[in-house]
Each structure stands twice: as C-alpha cells, then as structure tokens.
Design a protein around this nucleic acid. Structure first.
Length: 591
RNA sequence: GCGCCCGUAGCUCAACUGGAUAGAGCACCUGACUACGGAUCAGGAGGUUAGGAGUUCGAAUCUUCUCGGGCGCGCCA
C-alpha cells in the first residue's frame, strides 16, 4: 500500500463531504492540499494543510475546520492518533503495522517497488543530447545526456510510454564546413597538401574544424574512395563528402553515448524533415492560423551589431504566445532559418501523437525557449505541452584546481575521456547530484574518493555493506536462511529501534519521491533520496558497533536476525531500485 | 538596453513547488576502531535565505525594485 495515497484519499473525502453536506461553495480545487511527512517527525508521520487551504476558501478559522474534518475521518487500524498543531495542520500518527506491511510489499515487489501508473501509458517524447554532428561529444553533452536518460527512466517508472529521441542538425551551413574540413584533410592524406597549408587554412578561416577526428574521417574517406574526389569541383564533392562525414560522426556519437549507457530510440534528421516538405507544411499551418507576416525587426538596444540594416523578413507571431518579439523563419536568401525547421520538427512530434514533450538543452539556448514553446502552443492549438529543461555548465576540476577548457589550445575534455578516466557509473551519478539549472563542479579526484563527501561512494558503500552482511549470513547461518522465501517470514515486529522505524518510513516514502521527481522532471531528487537512505542505513549499522546485540546477525537469536535481514534487504532493494533509474550499477563489493 | 537562469552556514549544495524551529556534506572542535560489521558513526559550533518593499493565517519559494554572477539577443545551429 501507499500510505500517503491512503491518507490523501481519507482527507479528500472528508473535505468533499464537509463542503457538500453543508451546501458550501464547492468550486474548490483540491490540488493545493498537501499530504506529506512533516518537517519535524515529532509532529507525526503524515501531515496535511487541508484546513488552512479551506480556511481561505470558507473564510473561517482553520483550527475549527480542522476539528470538523477530524470528526469526519473514520476510525481505522492504520491511524493511531490525529491531532491539530500550529496554525491548523492535521497530523497523523501511523500504526507501525503499516510500515511493516509496506516492508512486506517491498520484499515481494523487488526492484519494481516504487513504480506507479500515474503516467497511464501516455506518450511522452524526450529529446536530449542532439549535439551537432560536427565534432565529438564533450562534457556538457554528458550532463544533458545523463539528465535526459535518467529522466526517461524515471518517466517509465511512472508508467509513461517514453520515446527517447535525438535530433540531428544535419541541414545547416556548418555541416558543409565539416565537409570542407574533411576534404582538406583528404587532400593532405593523399599528399596534395601539407600541415603548413592546413595551419594557413585554419588561420584564414577557410577551414573551421581542425580536430583530429576530422583526420580520421579523411582517412576513412581515402580507404573508401581513394583519389576519386581529387579533381572534382566543389559543387560535385561537397554534398557526398559532407554526407559521408556526417554519417561517420553520427556513428562516433552513438559510440560515445553507448559508453554512458545512453541509447536513444530514434534519431531524426533535420535534413530529412526539410526534404520531406515538412517545413513547408508547418509554415502553411501557421499561415492558416494567421500567425505569419512580413515585417522588419528593430535592432536590440544596448548591443552593437555591425552592418545592421533594417530588412523585411517573414516573421512568426511568437509574441502572441509570450515571446518578447516575433521571430524570423526565413533568411534573406529565401532559405528557412533554423527556427523554421525546428518548428517543422515539433510539428512532426505533434503529428506522431505526442502531447507531452521534453527538450533537454544547454543553458546557452535559454533565449530560444519562448519561441519554440510558442510554436508548439500554436501548432497544437494549446493541446500539446513542451517543457524545456536547461542544463547548466559542468566545471571540471582536478584535486580542487580548475581545468581550463578551450577549443583553441586543444585542452578540451571529451565525453570519452571523461568516461575512460572515472567510469560510466561515476559520471552518471555525479551528473545528477545537482539540479539541472545550476552549474556543477566535477572533480576528477574527488569523484573517486572513498569518503562520505563523495555521494557515489557513500551510496554504493551502503549497498555493498548489505551484500557483505548477506555473504556472512550465507556462511554462518542455516542453509536457505536468506532465501527470498525465508526472508518474507521475518516478523518486523522485532524491529522496534527508532532507527529501524526511521528506515522503514523512509523506504515507505520512495514511491512519493518518484512521483515528485516525475512531476517536476527533476531526476536529481532520486540521488538526494538515495544519499539520505544510505545515511539512514549507515546509522543503523553503527548501532551494532556500539552494542553487539544490535548487529544484524545474531546466531543466538535467529528470529531477530531474520527480521533484521529482511529489513536491510528492503534497503538494498530500494537502493537498487533507485540506482536502476539512474542506470548506475550497484556494486556488490567495494575494492 | 531587453529576456532567461542563479544568489541559502566559511566552502559545495538541499528544502516535497506557499507550510510548522531553513536541512545535509566538507572544513573546524569533542568522542567511538585488530578492519568488507569504523572507507563509518555520535555530539558541538556555524543563518537577517544578497538587500528593500509588497501579497496572506504563513514567503528561501509568488509580485516588484535594487545589487551581484552566468547565458543569450535578425540572414549560426
């Protein structure tokens, strides 16, 4: 059972009855009523602000409303006592048998414990990473990637039908820059240019991309085509070589993502969106909605733009939907802007049936959020909802000293280097130790430290300790003692320490944490919860150091041992359930 | 100039989306170890939530202004 939902139901029923039986205005939303553990556990196990919310609505004293509501709450075994505190909170003390019964649920549900069906199978699209295929993934992509991936897992856990998507920006001018860079390296590879020519070309801006990966692509180009393109004109080689380079880059990007356990369901090509005429179609839609016009934008104040000249452009009325100004969708040469194909892309998502969409972007795209949300609102007649999650910068450190990153000097840490040096699990966990919209410090030394200061270690260590206890139990206790079947016979009535009850209550709140994290699209909450649960476990563990009778294993009292083993089994299940959302492997043993 | 994000203990960050006495870790004091059952744990100290005004039973959270930091601002994506 989910005790919070149980109490919530009781409270909502009481509120509705109070309103209807007294012919009080019932145009009242229940959604502001909270049902949550109080800040201070001395107040009780579950608390509600229902009376205070009603007080505003009914213009009546909250405490007297509390009394009336309490009278409407039926007597039941789950609730030991109810009292009113503070300005009108109603606090419930819950019977310990409830926590015991939840622990039994955990044992039988295993890793699926915490799942819920609030998503009700609804389609949801989450687009993340979507890095330009013109270079290797770097640290920032790692954060967005892990964030999106964990959020996708979280949404699945809550019963959504999730599609994980990568949008390939393969249609703009910069992909041709990549094509040209590859061609230059291709000539170099064939001995027709040398490194001096290359330096010169970079300096003059003739070539934009100078990384070694461009060389690799050129090598592979030679392997496939020999000198086929050498004497061709640019108009002949540019398209095929660019396509070749993009395909190669996408392959490399997929490899990199795979290192982090990130696997998208679908890759959508911008070029294909354009070729399929979807931009034209989306533009027609906007035209029919009377949301396009030809106009001239005023230059931004306080910012000097050289060679600014007023120019008439086709504009989208995004300001109708909360954007600051209307936005251009056609360039002066007649081709579509990036925004136009992005509109078409989102139209495509809507056409595929998505009413819920999430985009994960780097924070440098913040200026773009309002316009794309405007377009989604417009194209779906407000039926679809897009949430844009912006991930802030990752700052790299080593032993507390900042690592300076610069494309020019070549000190540029890629996703691959990151994973190679600390491992997938560490990267994934650490990337989620901060809320998405604040910058994150990543210290190569610190994340491998074995101390409480390192949350990955601290959580993993809790899990490993539990496994260690079970290994000992396996050796020292009767056969089959720790089998799932036998653990279910454990009587939690033997667990009466305050620390034990605290753990049970914490475990019982796991489904609630998932619900909160899901609704707010904030996977970092899972990490903070796991840290808290690990901490509660380490506390309990240390009780056994102070007093040997409190150890989990006690050969002289198998009955109590069984109960305690069942309890820590619940801890390990919940830890594993959380780590599963993060896609971090729980470790059996610390080395 | 405008928009978005951020500002919480000395440091790094939470705070259940408006709830009760704002919580953790690091660092700093005090205490507990023959070791996969001490890589931890117990306790102490540390706050005008950048600042002012407002909204209400109640604000770190909402509104507004000021200060400070980051990102962005028509033919790049």
């Amino acid at each position: 059972m989910n005790i919070f939902l149980f109490i919530k139901d009781i409270i909502f029923t009481a509120v509705k009855n109070e309103l209807s039986e007294n012919n009080l205005p019932n145009d009242f939303s229940l959604k502001n009523i909270s049902v949550e553990p109080p800040r201070d556990k001395n107040f009780g196990d579950i608390s509600t602000n229902a009376a205070m919310i009603l007080a505003k609505h009914l213009k009546e004293n909250p405490k007297s409303i509390s009394k009336k509501l309490i009278e409407r709450i039926p007597k039941c075994d789950e609730i030991i006592s109810i009292n009113i505190a503070g300005p009108g909170f109603i606090n419930f003390h819950i019977n310990n048998s409830v926590w015991f019964s939840i622990m039994n649920d955990v044992l039988s549900q295993g890793l699926s414990y915490g799942s819920n069906e609030s998503g009700a199978g609804k389609l949801i699209n989450i687009e993340y990473v979507s890095a330009n295929p013109t270079g290797p993934l770097h640290v920032g992509h790692a954060r967005g990637g892990v964030f999106g991936d964990a959020l996708a897992n979280l949404l699945s856990k809550s019963g959504y039908n999730v599609t994980k998507e990568y949008y390939i920006n393969d249609a703009g001018s910069q992909v041709y820059s990549l094509g040209r860079a590859v061609y230059f390296r291709y000539l170099e590879e064939l001995g027709l240019k040398d490194s001096k020519d290359f330096e010169q070309a970079i300096k003059s801006g003739q070539i934009e991309y100078g990384g070694d990966y461009v060389k690799d692509i050129a090598t592979s180009l030679v392997e496939n085509y020999n000198d086929k393109w050498v004497s061709e004109n640019e108009e002949d080689w540019l398209e095929p070589i660019t396509d070749f380079a993009i395909n190669k880059m996408i392959f490399l990007i997929k490899e990199d993502l795979d290192l982090l356990g990130i696997r998208h369901d679908i890759f959508i090509s911008e070029k294909k969106i354009v070729q399929d005429g979807k931009v034209n179609k989306a533009v027609e839609n906007l035209e029919q909605l009377n949301l396009l016009y030809n106009g001239i934008l005023t230059p931004p104040k306080g910012k000097v733009i050289e060679d600014w000249e007023p120019r008439e452009q086709l504009l989208f009325r995004s300001s109708n939907f909360g954007d600051d100004v209307d936005r251009p969708i056609r360039k002066s040469d007649g081709s579509w802007t990036y925004f136009a194909s992005d509109i078409a892309y989102h139209q495509d998502k809507i056409d595929r049936g998505f009413k819920e969409m999430i985009n994960v972007w780097g924070a440098d795209h913040s200026g773009y959020v309002k316009r794309i949300k405007s377009s989604v609102t417009a194209l779906s007649s407000s039926q679809a909802n897009l949430d844009v999650k912006l991930c802030q910068l990752v700052k790299l450190f080593d032993e507390g000293k900042p690592i300076k990153m610069s494309k020019r000097t070549g000190t540029f840490i890629t996703l691959r280097e990151l994973v190679d040096s600390v491992g997938k699990d560490v990267v994934r966990f650490i990337m989620l130790t901060r809320k998405n919209d604040v910058s994150l410090d990543f210290d190569f030394t610190k994340v491998l430290e074995k101390s409480r200061d390192n949350p990955v270690f601290y959580v993993q260590y809790a899990f490993a300790r539990i496994q260690s206890v079970f290994r000992h139990a396996q050796k020292e206790l009767p056969d089959d003692f720790i089998s799932d079947k036998n653990l279910k016979k454990g009587d939690f009535k033997n667990c009466i320490l305050e620390e034990e009850l605290d753990i049970m209550k914490l475990i019982s709140s796991w489904p609630r944490i998932i619900e909160l994290a899901t609704n707010s699209h904030e996977p970092h909450r899972i990490v903070f919860y796991l840290y808290e649960l690990a901490s509660a476990f380490h506390i309990l563990w240390n009780k056994g150091n102070e007093n040997a009778e409190l150890r989990f294993l006690n050969k002289d009292n198998l009955n109590i041992s069984l109960s305690r083993l069942a309890l820590i089994k619940c801890v390990s299940i919940t830890l594993a359930s959380g780590l599963e959302i993060l896609d971090v492997t729980p470790v059996e043993e610390m080395r």
